[in-house]
Simulated scan of single mutants.
Amino acid sequence: MADLITWDDFEKVDLRAGTILEAVDFPKARKPAYQLLIDFGELGILKSSAQITVHYKKEDLVGRQIVAVVNFPKKQIADFMSECLITGFPDENGEIVLCSIERQVPNGTKLM
């Protein structure tokens, strides 16, 4: 188990719901990945790079609602600037399975 954190620590992580608008191949990434455009409502549209090519086809990702951390600093990956981090769990082979939202919520909704 990880170290215990305080409620204040948890509140620092800004996890939001967003809808994937676009998913394209990212051939310059070291590991197979997609470049995603994600709508976070009033927070705007953010970009992310995601190594999720094993379990997800690009066309199946568009319109899917995901959970992402939106308050990390931007990170350059090859020639792409990632602005948020989508969340998921590794399967038995280490391939990422996205966190899912059971019912549609407004884009930008904060995880409580």
Rank of each mutant, 00 (worst) to 15 (best):
V105C: 04
V70S: 12
V67M: 15
S48W: 11
R103F: 06
D8N: 15
D3V: 12
V62C: 06
T53E: 05
S82A: 15
I77A: 04
I86Q: 11
E102H: 10
K75Y: 11
K28W: 10
D9F: 14
F72Q: 13
A23M: 02
W7M: 12
A17V: 10
D39H: 06
M81K: 03
I52R: 00
I101G: 04
A78Q: 07
E102I: 11
D8R: 08
H55N: 13
A2K: 13
I77G: 01
A23P: 00
C84K: 01
L43R: 08
I5Y: 09
Q51F: 07
E42F: 01
C84Q: 02
F80H: 12
G44F: 01
Q35V: 14
A33M: 07
T53R: 04
I101Y: 12
I66W: 04
F10W: 08
A23V: 00
P73K: 06
F10H: 04
F10S: 08
E102V: 10
I101R: 10
P73V: 10
V54D: 10
P27I: 13
E59W: 11
V24Y: 13
D14L: 11
E92C: 14
A78P: 09
K74V: 11
V69T: 06
A50S: 13
V105W: 01
I86L: 05
S48D: 07
A78S: 15
Q104L: 09
I77M: 03
W7I: 12
E102W: 10
A17K: 00
N107I: 09
D14T: 07
T6Q: 12
E83W: 01
C84M: 06
I45M: 03
Q76V: 05
L98G: 00
N93E: 11
C84G: 07
K31G: 05
R30N: 12
V54M: 12
G88H: 02
L4Q: 10
V105G: 13
Q65Y: 04
N93T: 14
G94W: 05
M112D: 15
A33V: 05
G94L: 09
M112S: 15
L4M: 15
A23E: 00
A23F: 02
K28L: 05
I101K: 11
D8A: 14
E11L: 03
L43Q: 09
I101N: 01
L15G: 14
D79F: 06
H55R: 05
D39K: 02
P90H: 01
L98S: 00
I96G: 08
I86K: 01
N107L: 07
L61Q: 03
V97A: 07
T87E: 11
Q104T: 15
Q51A: 06
I52H: 01
K74Y: 00
I5D: 03
L36Q: 00
S82W: 00
N107M: 04
L85F: 14
T109G: 03
D3F: 09
L36N: 02
F26H: 01
W7N: 15
R64V: 03
Q104R: 14
M81F: 08
D8C: 13
L61A: 08
R103H: 12
I86T: 13
N107W: 13
I101W: 08
I38M: 03
E83I: 08
S49I: 00
Q76C: 09
V67K: 03
D9I: 12
E92K: 14
L4Y: 04
F72E: 03
F72I: 07
